[in-house]
Nucleic acid binder design. Structure first.
Length: 732
DNA sequence: TGGTAGCCTG
DNA sequence: CAGGCTACCA
């Protein structure tokens, strides 16, 4: 503590408002600290905070007294000051912008350490007391407001008694705060003096010698290192304990200083103030303001360079801010890289999981890498038959399926639809998840959704965003990372944080509990939940054995969830998945099961789900061909040959203004929020012509006449856009 | 034998 | 859209 670096290093660790190792139960709060406004302000004090926000001491030193930097806690104190002390005018007056130099009484390093430590301990104690009373104060005030109305009607003696009690409590609180203010003011003055002294000495060296630069750098490095270390090692509780939420912003200090004549070190402070700027409570105010200004804009930097203290101070402040930002980023990255935190050994099938690969870089690259990794682990699959392209086949899904009705982690709703809940051991009854009154794509808790994503159908690209964590203003990618990260949190840690529905993109309600989910996708935590519990309960392992099936080792662990009776699994297919499948049909009429698995990463595939999806596409094709044949026949009857630009007869055309197009669009893109790809129109037109030609030529008399057309069409599948690899329905 | 396509039916 | 059925393939 005999050096600013020590002081700051330690201070930084004490005051950091960020939690590098967040309690999972509060993990969701993190994004709240990240706002795009204000140039990426990351300080939590700018956000509505819980009753005990983390107020770094330094942070308050930064505050020029302006409202933007005020925190909730400060506002509370402001209110208290205004109401109880009526000092607003004086404070404003004191903010006259006087700049004060560093000076005043200086303590030795050791003395300062001891003194400061004592102050900190005392402040902590006072703070705790203040918080208790402070919270009570808030409640009492609110209650007071309410009772003001009631009093006019009742005016009971009991009310008066309570009033008196409140008054006493207020007075006690006031005293507590007064004392706290005094101690804090002293403490901050000491902090400043420590910096000022040290920095001034360094400045002297700097101006007189040439080694100062090296020293300065070394000092900075050391500070940074210690700061970072302190940050990463700090404990949440420590932060909370040592944060000083009720340190008043500068305007208040002015008045406080004036009032705080009864403080123990009154004489000392008065002397300091007199020495500095001729008295008044603006000493610290000025210092703080200068620091803030110095930090806030570099215009006046030259003015302060004479004061090593400010410089050091500013450096430390910058470091704190920088480290705070870095910590947030690091935290995000750490969370992101926490994928697969669960040992693979527990889940013997490395190939399990859905493919989420795709094009592009960034997240996509990561996802693709993940996919590739899984593909490698999968170790080949079985080929499929004479299926159309993409029927590269794969290991069959889970052969046996069990369902459980016990789904404590997910909201289940009564289901009146037939077959929505499968009886145990009935893997064949796959039906769509029941519709729900909310937007079709997902159903997280409304409060968890940013306003922009609450109406998924109206957004251009919905994917995961609508079912992501409640991270307002957080970039989509970051939300992905958070979601992905949180998806791997231990289920017990996640418990109580949110309903697993939050994760469920397009699968808000559990279906009949077929297994589902792929832990590989960012927004598909359910599996993580299941995996975690699976780990916890080895006794359930026998289900895997009985399940047998999993060819190619895939899906082995994936289906564990269904045995756990958690019910949180995103099993089965939802209306969202159906919608997505229909849109996929624009690109692929004959998707293979592997392809489907790739494009439904939020679905835990098993035999039932796979069959259901395949059946869907079969139905899509059926509808498609029926329409083709129908219109082809109609055209044949009507002799509907279109006239081309050259006025020559041309085969049937399928324009976007035709009835056939409308029907197709209505069927596969009912909400009409997805632009039908030209390619699909072309293919449909081709199919129409083929049908038309076959009919015209009488080939339709052959029972197998359609197969020829099918063969043609099945070769025209296009790659499905990467946007389909995300959960939810791609739009646009 | 399992998976899938296609057809038919509801 | 799903169920049932058949046919086909590997």
């Amino acid at each position: 503590m005999d050096s600013p670096s020590d002081l700051f290093g330690r201070q930084s660790s004490l005051i950091s408002p960020f939690d590098p190792y967040p309690n999972p139960s509060t993990a969701l709060d993190l994004p709240r600290h990240i706002t795009p406004s204000g140039g990426g302000t990351v300080h939590p004090t700018l956000e509505p905070t819980p009753p005990q926000p983390h107020y770094p001491l330094i942070h308050h030193l930064l505050q020029p007294g302006g409202a933007p930097m005020r925190s909730k806690g400060q506002l509370h104190l402001d209110r208290y000051n205004r109401e109880e002390e009526g000092m607003e005018g004086e404070k404003e007056e004191g903010m006259g912008g006087r700049l004060v130099g560093v000076g005043g009484k200086r303590l030795s390093g050791a003395a300062l350490v001891a003194d400061w430590s004592y102050d900190i301990m005392r402040v902590k104690r006072l703070r705790l007391e203040s918080l208790v009373f402070g919270d009570g104060e808030i409640g009492l005030e609110e209650e007071e407001e309410e009772e003001k109305g009631r009093r006019s009607a009742e005016r009971g003696n009991r009310e008066k008694g309570r009033e008196g009690r409140r008054k006493r409590e207020k007075e006690e609180l006031k005293e507590q705060l007064e004392e706290a203010r005094g101690r804090l003011k002293d403490l901050q003055e000491k902090v400043w003096k420590a910096f000022g002294e040290r920095s001034a000495q360094e400045e002297e060296k700097r101006w007189s010698g040439g080694e100062q630069e090296e020293d300065g750098d070394g000092e900075m490095n050391k500070e940074e290192e210690e700061t970072a270390k302190g940050i990463t090692e700090e404990e949440v509780g420590e932060i909370d304990d040592l944060s000083l939420p009720f340190i008043p912003s500068s305007p208040h200090f002015q008045g406080i200083a004036k009032q705080d004549r009864k403080a123990e070190d009154h004489e000392k402070r008065s002397e300091e103030q007199r020495n500095v700027n001729g008295g008044g409570g603006v000493f610290l105010e000025g210092v703080l303001k200068r620091a803030a200004v110095w930090m806030g804009c570099g215009v006046v930097r030259g003015e302060w360079e004479r004061f090593g203290g400010e410089q050091k101070f500013a450096q430390a402040l910058k470091q704190e801010l920088g480290s705070a930002v870095a910590r947030v980023i690091d935290r995000v990255l750490r969370l992101y890289t926490q994928n697969d935190p669960l040992p693979r050994s527990i889940h013997p099938s490395p190939g399990e999981g859905r493919n989420v690969g795709g094009g592009g870089g960034g997240v996509w690259a990561a996802l693709r890498e993940r996919e590739e990794r899984k593909e490698r682990g999968r170790g080949g699959g079985s080929a499929t038959h004479d299926q159309p392209p993409h029927s590269n086949g794969g290991p069959p899904p889970h052969p046996h399926q069990e369902q459980s009705e016990a789904l404590p982690l997910i909201t289940r709703r009564p289901d009146n639809r037939r077959n929505n809940l499968l009886p145990p051991n009935n893997p064949t009854k796959n039906t769509l998840l029941p519709p729900h009154p909310f937007p079709p794509l997902c159903q997280p808790h409304p409060a968890f959704l940013p306003p922009s994503s609450r109406h998924k159908d109206s957004s251009p690209f919905l994917p995961p965003s609508s079912c992501l964590l409640p991270i307002p203003l957080l970039h989509y990618t970051m939300q992905q990372l958070f979601t992905r990260s949180l998806s791997h949190l231990h289920p017990l840690h996640k418990g109580g944080i949110m309903n697993s529905d939050v994760y469920m993109e397009g699968n808000p309600f559990p279906h009949h509990l077929t297994s589902s989910s792929s832990s590989s996708h960012p927004s598909f935590p359910p599996l993580a939940v299941m995996e975690g519990l699976d780990r916890l309960d080895g006794g359930l392992q026998h289900h895997h054995e009985r399940d047998g099936g999993m060819r190619g080792g895939r899906d082995g662990g994936m289906d564990s969830g269904i045995y756990l009776g958690l019910g949180s699994s995103q099993e089965g297919l939802s209306p969202c998945h159906l919608k997505k499948a229909k849109l996929m049909f624009f690109y692929a009429r004959y998707p293979s099961s592997n392809t489907l698995k790739t494009y439904f990463p939020d679905v835990k595939f098993n035999r039932c789900v796979t069959s259901q999806l395949i059946k869907w596409f079969s139905n899509f094709r059926e509808f498609f061909y029926i329409q083709m044949e129908r219109f082809a026949r109609q055209a044949a009857r009507d002799g509907a040959l279109c006239l081309g630009r050259d006025s020559r007869e041309t085969p049937l055309r399928l324009g976007r203004d035709t009835e056939l197009y409308r029907i197709l669009n209505m069927h596969y893109n009912k909400s009409n929020d997805y632009q039908v790809p030209d390619r699909f129109v072309e293919i449909a037109e081709l199919a129409l012509r083929e049908f038309y030609t076959a009919i015209q030529t009488g080939r339709d008399s052959d029972p197998c006449w359609k197969k020829y057309i099918y063969k043609i069409i099945c070769k025209l599948d296009s790659p499905v856009p990467d946007s389909f690899r995300l959960p939810g329905c791609p739009m646009g």
